[in-house]
Design a binder for these strands. Structure first.
Lengths: 141, 141
DNA sequence: TTCGGTGCAAAGGGTTTGCAACCTG
DNA sequence: CAGGTTGCAAACCCTTTGCACCGAA
């Protein structure tokens, strides 16, 4: 995602565009993996020593509510990644060590036909966990 | 699950069988739904006023490590249910209100063929969320 | 100018840990 | 009897909130 697209996405939300938000969002979109709040703060602190946990949490929450981020739990911590620009519904393979993801071009919901008709489905989750090539080579699996 | 099976399962783990563990496990297996630590504590407090958070957390963790329980996140809280006795791999529909589950006799992994061969798969998660008949009738969806 | 964003400090909530007493196997 | 289990208290960590000031629109 380039800078123009990032700005467009942020502006199309109901959130004000502040320098810190722009930088947080840029960081998240450049990394393209699931990142914890702690990691985001560490990154931001380098450039803005006064950056606080509150702002990071508040912005991650706002971003997620606006649909700019997706969340999952990685190693016990809530982690976030930018919503994929792929315009079709899909899922991910997720590296348990570095959070890196690979697009999985399949949704199991198309195979689920025999659901209880009295159960109202509102959401689903399909994630495959493991270790990416790079982390395996480093022996981190 | 009857009392005999519960005892067998607990004994086959590496955990000692104490009255409180037995009762916690009985409660979880009778309910057959995802239950939060808080709920478990409330239930246990009725019979054992001295029951503490620590013991509930420790036992839930031990049970899960022994494979006696499965965990998911429900409404922001880690919740647990007894591992199904169904002897084949499967997944669940989960009611977002009461945690009740329905067995889903399908695993999407059999449709996943085109995985990156360099990604080492170690686990996966497939859950369908929604509202069960009873909760819908009560307007809790 | 207005309303939302931010930093600070403090509180909150869920979860974990050290320790001494207790109990299962 | 030994080693795991429990209750208590305290600590811990992540996350949220109230408030005053600042800044985007």
């Amino acid at each position: 995602m380039n800078e123009t697209e990032r700005l467009d996405r942020l502006r199309s939300s109901s959130l004000k565009v502040t320098p810190k938000r722009l930088e947080m969002y840029a960081y998240l979109s450049e990394e393209d993996r699931y990142i914890s709040a702690k990691e985001v703060l560490e990154y931001m602190r380098d450039k803005h020593p006064t950056m606080s946990f509150d702002t990071v949490y508040r912005n991650l929450k706002s971003f997620a509510e606006e649909g700019l981020l997706e969340a999952t739990e990685l190693d016990g911590e809530k982690s976030f990644r930018v919503t994929c620009s792929a315009n079709h519904h899909h899922h991910h393979l997720i590296c348990r060590n570095c959070g890196k993801t690979k697009l999985l071009d399949l949704c199991p919901m198309r195979f689920v036909e025999t659901l209880d008709p009295e159960f109202e489905v509102v959401d689903h989750k399909f994630e495959i966990y493991g270790y990416c090539k790079e982390c395996k080579q480093k022996g981190l699996n």
